[in-house]
Design a protein around this nucleic acid. Structure first.
Lengths: 206, 206
DNA sequence: GAACATATCTTAACATTGTCAAGATGCATA
DNA sequence: TATGCATCTTGACAATGTTAAGATATGTTC
């Protein structure tokens, strides 16, 4: 009651945050396509026009949720990288943390990268939060290749991108459905991650 | 004129295909979010209700487009794998072909994997077309690991998934924006692919 | 060729949506 | 206490997805 609905005050108190929470709840229930600004307002106990005093439009609500998501991912990555001092182990932990974030927070991941098919990445706040979340990977690769960044910077970027693509691809295939839809689902996702990260990262450079 | 608009006949002739073509054109122009069934009908020169005689709803139009996309990808993968006989080279060619497909047919890729945020993967036709497109990768990995599939099948699945995740991740990061938005865009995408596939696949197992 | 069944298309309507303009209400500050 | 600002509401607008009922062409059967 106190969480979802309105208070009895005319001024809601913290409508902005309430809208963001209910936005997530709604997407969890009905998917991003069935998500409606009006219904978020309804659930939050305010009129359809009320959200416009806190977000310029529907897309900006989603952008705000995406920023929250990136902050959560950032936090998860930070914790993961703190578990190990060895850069190789650190890298593997980061990868697992990335994929598990997508698995455990499917909705966030969806909004962060797919949004409402809107170009969320032009939003400076989103970009910034995303950069922070990605910095852990970059730092760890810097530890792994102290020399790489100096001479051939493109080689460093490629290394970052290789790792990012790997885990982002796995996460995307899971979140978007094809992986769960395929019979590969027999393997539980967590074991799968270990298997794959082992296969991809154990070899030599990572 | 003949392509986009209607014919003078009452019966359109091939409205189904016309709708699919204009669906793509519209998404190219306005993005998936700005895509409207009514406007597709308008562009095609028919009434708003006409498409419902060819597709059950908006999602099924997109599903049909997705199937077309997977057939194109299938064809591209087939050509790529035929260029080499060595399985290692073949695998690299498949990877490059996958990513380049996403880059050159952004809209198709978007519809195939993101759709309208709808669960396209429950559609049997989509699933089937996707499996075909993926079979080339599976076959090539089978060639690489003749022994893998027998004893430990999960190891084989993991190998397939590792490669798929790699290229799908790269493609997704490009299509969804983050890669183009980041400064990494300095590197042209094609060189980037070569760099990454080289880094990821040259090592040992692939 | 005429009659008829069927596929294809249109018009008209419905509930819903995102968004905006104008007005109401409460809060804080002078 | 009076004034100004942030917050919320009501009411409206055009647009959308979708359906029902009716019109028109096409092809098949006699």
């Amino acid at each position: 009651m106190a969480e979802t609905g309105r208070t009895d005050k005319y001024h809601h108190g913290d409508l902005r945050q309430t809208l963001m929470n209910n936005c997530l709840k709604l997407i969890e229930d009905k998917g991003v396509s069935g998500f409606t600004l009006r219904e978020v307002a309804r659930i939050s106990g305010v009129s359809a026009a009320a959200p416009y005093h806190h977000f310029r439009n529907k897309t900006e609500l989603l952008a705000a949720v995406a920023v929250m998501g990136f902050k959560m991912l950032d936090e998860a990555q930070r914790k993961a990288s703190q578990q190990f001092s060895n850069p190789g182990h650190k890298l593997k932990a980061l990868g697992k943390s990335y994929v598990m974030f997508a698995v455990n927070h499917k909705v966030y991941f969806h909004v962060m990268f797919r949004a409402n098919n809107e170009p969320l990445w032009e939003n400076a706040q989103v970009m910034n939060a995303a950069k922070h979340a990605l910095s852990h990977l970059e730092n760890t690769i810097r530890e792994l290749y102290p020399e790489a960044e100096k001479g051939n910077s493109s080689h460093f970027q490629a290394a970052v991108l290789t790792c990012w693509s790997m885990v982002h691809g796995l996460a995307s295939l899971w979140v978007d459905g094809p992986l769960r839809a395929a019979e590969s689902g027999k393997l539980e996702i967590e074991k799968l991650i270990d298997l794959i990260l082992g296969q991809a990262m154990t070899h030599r450079s990572f």
